[in-house]
Simulated scan of single mutants.
Amino acid sequence: MTNKVRGYMQLHPYHLVGPSPWPMFTSFSLMNLATSIALTSHGYMGHNYMMVMCAMTMLYSMTLWFKDMMAESTYLGDHTLAVKKGMMQGFLLFVVSEMLIFVSLFWAYLHSALNPSVELGMQWPPAGMEAMSAAELPLLNTMMLLASGVTITFAHHALINGNRKNTLYGFLYSTLLIVIFVGCQGLEYKIAPFTISDSVYGSTFFSATGLHGLHMMMLGIMLALCTWRVYNYDFTNSSHVGAETTILYTHVLDVMWLFMYMVMYWWGA
């Protein structure tokens, strides 16, 4: 359906989004999730039911929002070249903000690591703490992320060349690798010899790696969604902004993990 059929002639290439409840609904869901996490962490709630319910509500609202966006892009033709360019620029700004968050966490880690105080025993890791071995599970996770970078690049080239089968396989393999990575990181947290409350070492380590793990969960959802859209013939070799942003996000998180592995696992230990 074009804008002319809808009853008016649009004289610009931009998409004027109609009234939608999902931005407000998602905002309240995020606020409730953050509040429930804070209250649970400080012991005001004796269970995790509210936190899980808020997370499910947020995912549900985001799902409905993304469904409307995909309809606008694939079936209504609202995403013109100007709209796609604006979406890509917006996503690049989002990536820059994400990188600055990780820069602050690296800063906090290196501030204590390069000049450990008396309270830390004048050494890093602090006295009496056993660091995570960089040659075991973290190395396996690093190899899987490097492999996901290869498979997503394979999918990108196949998508540009119009090879739907290889594109589908590339996104599928990338999704499986990210899911395995998240599972292995959860296992790593379970067997870790220290906790988030063990001095500044534990707090900065788990804050940085945990935030990266949260982003990997989001990336897994994005890759699974792209896999479904490729299967559903939503992407073409000339129109695939959703796939491009997901591919870019995969590479950014891969590079961020490499820095995290070298600084916090290899050098920091």
Rank of each mutant, 00 (worst) to 15 (best):
Y265N: 00
E188K: 05
M24G: 11
L258R: 06
M143D: 07
H42L: 10
H240Q: 13
S133Y: 11
G213D: 08
F205T: 05
H12T: 10
K84N: 15
T246K: 05
G242S: 07
A38K: 14
F106Y: 08
L92Q: 12
L214S: 13
G7W: 02
A158T: 02
G242Q: 11
A269I: 05
L120A: 13
V118C: 06
L159W: 01
Q10C: 01
G186M: 05
L223M: 15
L140A: 12
S27R: 09
T26C: 13
F66Q: 15
N3D: 10
W257S: 07
M24A: 14
L219F: 02
D234W: 03
G128L: 07
F235Q: 07
V95C: 07
M217S: 01
V182W: 09
A108K: 13
M218V: 11
T195P: 03
M56K: 10
D68I: 02
F235M: 08
H251I: 04
A55E: 12
T246H: 03
Y231G: 09
V52R: 15
K85C: 06
T209G: 02
A71M: 10
H79N: 10
F102G: 02
A71G: 06
Y231R: 15
Y14M: 10
N163H: 04
L16N: 12
I196Q: 08
L187I: 09
H42A: 07
G86A: 07
T175L: 04
T40F: 05
Y14P: 05
T74V: 13
H251M: 05
V83Y: 14
I247K: 04
T236S: 11
M144E: 04
L140P: 04
M216V: 08
N237V: 00
G242N: 13
H215F: 04
V255G: 05
M264H: 11
T26V: 09
V83L: 11
Q89C: 04
M217G: 01
G128H: 06
S174N: 09
L211C: 05
I191S: 09
H215V: 01
Q10D: 06
M260N: 07
A38D: 12
A38G: 09
F25H: 09
T63W: 09
G213M: 11
N166C: 02
G149Y: 00
G186T: 05
F235K: 08
D78V: 01
H251C: 02
K67P: 00
D234K: 10
E244S: 09
M9R: 04
K165S: 04
